[in-house]
Amino acid sequence: MRARHASPLRRRLAVAGVLGLGLSTTLAACGSSDDDAGADGGSLRVTTLGLCNEVVYWAQEKGLFADHGVDVELVKSTGGAAALTALQSGDIDLAFANPFSTMIAIDQGLDLKWIATAYETTSVEADAANAMVVAKDAGITGAADLNGKTIGVNEVGGINQIASSQWMKLEGGDPSTVKFVALPFNELASAVASGKVAAAQVPAQNVDPELGLVSLGDPYVVAGEGSNLVFAGYVATGKEAKEREKDLKAFQDALIETNEAFNDPANDDERFKLASAQCKQDAAVLKTLPENIYEARVDTGALERMGEILVGQDRLDDPPSPEDFVPSYVTTK
């Protein structure tokens, strides 16, 4: 009798569980949509991923945002796509995201504007900050050897998968035969070493010869075809971009100033100390790691080329033009 009576409830719970799963992934979107998107003056809520080298920490620490007259509040987010979702619900004002995801989102109908760049990728292999890594003894020497194999990336459909696909295509492989699988950054290298995946795109410092790993090259260097690409930056909704022009401009100016400090070797000790406190890693180790290029000014040419990459991969038909999604007050280069 007991089980009988309980069962309809359980059935409902099971269904509710599945629906809840759906709701939770878009929970942010269900919140208020625009009541927080005030005009200039309030604090600017900016997402971070908690990476060691995010320039916003320095700017915040040194009071550079305040100097430029903008009050910044840093908010942790789990990834670019999640940040873009939170942006839409008005929970945050600036999303730390990558240009590929941003352009795909714009293509899907989201109204997004690129306010400032955070990093660019290098076009020089010697400075590579990323690597397509394989096991040394796996007999894989080039992109073509990865056809039909599984490649690990940190996020399915994310910037690294797109860069990897582009690298394969340009290096004579066929990315359509490849299966991409999502694994956390810190497990990618060991997954390659243990043979669970044939290759993975990892930060360059993860190419650990002791694990028997070798790099086939930096996909971004190849995908850039001689130029830098935009790796990450800050994105606002079209509405905010219009209403909070002063704050957003000040935010970018503060970042430009921060990058000047960052690129001055005289500040290295201090900035690695700060990074070390930020992400709980040894400053001496951090100092040895390859870094992306710190650049807050927006390279519209690079954005345009990246749009073409997406078209070439059939991820969208008509890429958004930088003229449209980079506001005119943003400093470009």
Partner: peptide, 19 residues
């Protein structure tokens, strides 16, 4: 995949299917 490419309709229909 739907989520990372902002195809929310696809995402929701997958949830409907799971439901």
């Amino acid at each position: 995949v739907a989520q990372s490419s902002f195809r929310y309709l696809d995402m929701w229909s997958a949830f409907v299917l799971i439901g």
